[in-house]
């Protein structure tokens, strides 16, 4: 089985978010870039499956400019066998899915995180599956592989389901798929330098959405404090003032 893990390059989740002058673009000054946390868990699960046997190779792919290469190298250091970077600015979800569709053929299992922690789009995985005309399963919190057959655990409202599905399949994975993301070891970092990172030119593709402007949330009103010994007052405030109880 050949696995492809889609990697989004995102600002560290503790980044203070700023936009440039007229709020038209994200201000990337001084930003630390990381593997999108969900993609990192997807890669971790792919590694676990490979260690159990039955996985031939793990490829990681990203659509981005040269600045995303350290993130792909990190994925290689974690344990992916090779990486593909489609050389383009990731303009919107459809544009990215179109680029990935060019490099995502020939894999049995494609794994995408449920969303990227920057634009929270949740779009690329499903769009790619439709472009490739393959099956997809979303809300996946577990994947097992036995004798070439995938067993997939999916979250549904108020429960879980165990599924079987034929390959090729794209899974959109979320919480539970792996517990702790793998951290690259020194040996992995050394080896990653020699692993193949293929740069592929972008294909012609349209964008279907435009980010017009960004805003930061309005500052929140100060927290209203209630004394420890008078906690009952809190319930009165929630009931009579906030009217939420």
């Amino acid at each position: 089985m050949k696995i492809l893990v889609l990697i989004s390059n995102v600002p560290d989740t503790t980044t203070k978010i700023r936009f440039t002058g007229d709020n038209k673009a994200f201000d990337a000054t001084g930003v630390q870039w990381i593997i999108n946390p969900w993609d990192e868990l997807a890669l971790t699960r792919a590694m676990e499956l490979k260690e159990k046997g039955g996985v031939e190779s793990i490829t990681v792919a990203n659509v981005g400019t040269k600045i995303t290469e350290p993130t792909l190298r990190k994925a290689l250091a974690v344990g992916a066998d090779d990486a593909i970077r489609v050389d383009a600015e990731p303009l919107d979800a459809y544009f990215v899915a179109k680029q990935l569709a060019e490099v995502a053929k020939g894999y049995d299992l494609i794994m995408a995180g449920i969303e990227a922690s920057d634009y929270n789009g949740s779009g690329v995985g499903g769009m790619l599956a439709e472009l490739l005309e393959i099956n997809s399963v979303s809300a996946v919190s577990g994947i097992d592989l036995t004798d070439g057959q995938l067993k997939i655990l999916r979250e549904i409202d108020g429960g879980t389901q165990t599924l079987e599905i034929s390959t090729p399949v794209l899974t959109v994975v979320q919480k539970g798929i792996a517990i702790d993301p793998r951290i690259p070891a020194m040996r992995g970092i050394m080896m990653a330098r020699k692993k193949p990172l293929k740069v592929v030119p972008a294909v012609e593709a349209e964008t279907r959405t435009d980010f017009l402007s960004f805003e930061l949330p309005a500052p929140k009103a100060a927290c209203k404090m209630v004394e420890e010994d008078n906690a009952k007052e809190l319930i009165r405030l929630l009931h009579e003032e906030a009217k939420v109880l």
């Binding site: 459809y94 949740s122 779009g123 769009m127 439709e130 979303s138 959109v172 959405t209």
Partner: peptide
Amino acid sequence: AHNNEGKAIAPRLSVRMNAGMVSG
């Protein structure tokens, strides 16, 4: 809805319908 089912179907549908999509 921006929930498990919506996130599963909407992106696929957007490609089918040549539609742009915004989530959440």
